[in-house]
Amino acid sequence: MTATFALPFLTLPNEVVTLGPWIVGQAGAPLLPIKPMLDGWDYATDLELQSSLSIDMRAASEVLAIPEQELKLAVTLNVGTGRGRFPRTTKRISSYILDAEAEQLIEMRAIIPGNMLSGRVHARIEVLLAAAPASGSILSPNCVGSRLWSEEISVELEDGGENRFPIEVVSFTETFPNHGHMTAPWYLAWKPGGLAADFGGSIRLYVNSDHRELAQRVVDGDDVTLQAILGDVMVQMITAALDTNDSAEQLRECEEGSVGAQISAWMELAFPRRGLSEIQNMQRNLPGHFHAGIHAAAEVGDLE
């Protein structure tokens, strides 16, 4: 677990908890190392997930400042499915209780029926405090269920997930006949009103495969092409948000993972620490700066 935030009690670093590699695949067939996508899945395919985890209990007891004899940990495996930042539904598949005497290598194995999975499989392994210790330091965790270490994986099964930009390369003459944008190089399908909507569920970028060269560059992931397209996408969406009457209020309401939250993040990226009204002013008075600022922020090369 790479901690980006602090919990109010001592937690376990990666040196104490060792997670083996995840392997995943069709139940009964050889499992493969986990990748963001699993090909060839459908509801009729049961999935199998495996990994192993070991905890150095002596080190854990030192790190948590809880005497080894009083330290009881639980290792839980939760599996979830469904789109969104959090899976739509989550189930605890197994939990193991560890103490100083227990076998310290846990083999985790879950078979998930295909007819319980939707779109993706999400798994979270977590180490929790299983029992309140009688002693310990003031910083020692002391509530049952205290989260001490965790690791998540998500494998896309059916369609792209929210960590990918929803994109499709299609022929516009076939897909959007009689539309003004039939010959456009790309088209962003979205509805400006839905700032609260889930980003992954409401935005889709269509690239016109009738423009062969462009489509090829998109498929190849050409940086400049992607920056141009993404810049346009960001301009569209930021502009639409700025043009909303009560944009400030609406954007504030937006949950993480929503269109609105994404737009806010893009504005922060393009115009750090600028207030909404400042950005709106720029849009009106310095449209060139406004557009170029966004296009500059749309750089998709490796981020630092």
């Binding site: 939760n78 929790l128 049952v144 269920g145």
Partner: peptide, 13 residues
Amino acid sequence: NQIVDLTFLSPEN
């Protein structure tokens, strides 16, 4: 729930 897994608690707790 960010710091304690509430789903790990017994139903009573």
